[in-house]
Design a protein around this nucleic acid. Structure first.
Lengths: 179, 179
DNA sequence: ACCTGAACACCGTTCAAGT
DNA sequence: ACCTGAACACCGTTCAAGT
């Protein structure tokens, strides 16, 4: 799914790989659609709710926010999965899950910024900026897989982005320049 | 293609819609792959090369750059097409075209910025920022089609982006705040 | 030069029959 | 409860035969 999109999810191939027949597949799932939706809902839980739950254990909201950014942009598989789903946004199986995940992430991010002292409307705006940066960051890597578009190791793009986003935080709590 | 991805390109459906048989399709195209590639190459020409050719008629590099930004972010079908292709970036039919288009756009954008007096490495960095913003802008609209994520009519997101990008231009030529 | 219609392969889906 | 194997539908592809 992450690599080849919906078309890569093939019942017959799956059955072969599991050493069984495709007939038996239909005991476990009503049809291919149910497999796809189940997989997407699993992804929703593991990759969004689970991450949020983990972040909630962090006490300091500024530390939590930074950890959130770090997790977001360090998780290549997650980013590739999200950008892979983009083409199928109109698909009735993918659309609803993708909308839920996107909204959940946006609201959580907005809330995280508010807890850091950013006014709500600016927080929402910054959450949108972060979400577009996320899609763009992984999308561009997907488009140009053979190039280090964002530079080799040091990522000036991410630094720039974090700088813009953190510029909004109450001055005293901004990440020291060395971190 | 733009709406349903590769899977929506169906020879039988196409033949029906044209009131002919699928057998006759194979007189015009070697196979479905050739149709897909031909379509993508057409898109490459119409949506990238043609736009660039049109921009080249604009004399003033700063005016040209603004026109470029306007075209980029006003062209919803174009943006949706690009984000639709993202999932198929690994596909041998889509990948090469998508890479060419992306690289072409990045180099052109970088060049346009350089002609406005921006130093080459900063120009490249800003071109990358613009490219990610482009993917993020249309990607997020694709993910949340029922919401006006970026605000109704006035687009503070784009204004913000243009502000960041134009901040780099030689001071005297920056777009007046009213425009 | 261009089209049709039948044939076949591939994969989703069903289901009667097995254990 | 879980699996198999045969059957059928759908669509990509081929091709001999038509105009």
């Amino acid at each position: 799914m992450r690599e080849g999109g919906l078309a890569a999810v093939v019942v017959e191939t799956l059955a072969e790989r599991l050493g069984t027949t495709k007939g038996s597949f239909y005991w476990h799932f009503k049809d291919r659609d149910e497999l796809v939706v189940t997989g997407l809902e699993l992804w929703e839980q593991e990759m969004t709710e689970a991450v949020i739950a983990r972040l909630e254990t962090v006490g300091d909201p500024v530390v939590r926010l930074r950890q959130l950014f770090d997790l977001m942009f360090a998780d290549q598989p997650g980013g590739f999965m999200t950008t892979a789903l983009l083409s199928h946004a109109q698909d009735p199986r993918v659309g609803p899950v993708l909308q839920r995940v996107t909204r959940r992430r946006l609201t959580y991010l907005t809330g995280a910024l508010v807890e850091c002292g950013v006014p709500p409307d600016r927080a929402h705006h910054h959450a949108v900026v972060a979400a577009t940066a996320y899609l763009g960051y992984f999308g561009l890597q997907r488009q140009l897989p053979d190039e280090a578009v964002f530079g080799a190791e040091a990522k000036p793009y991410l630094r720039h982005l974090l700088h813009v986003l953190e510029a909004e935080l109450p001055a005293a709590r901004v990440r020291p320049s060395g971190a």
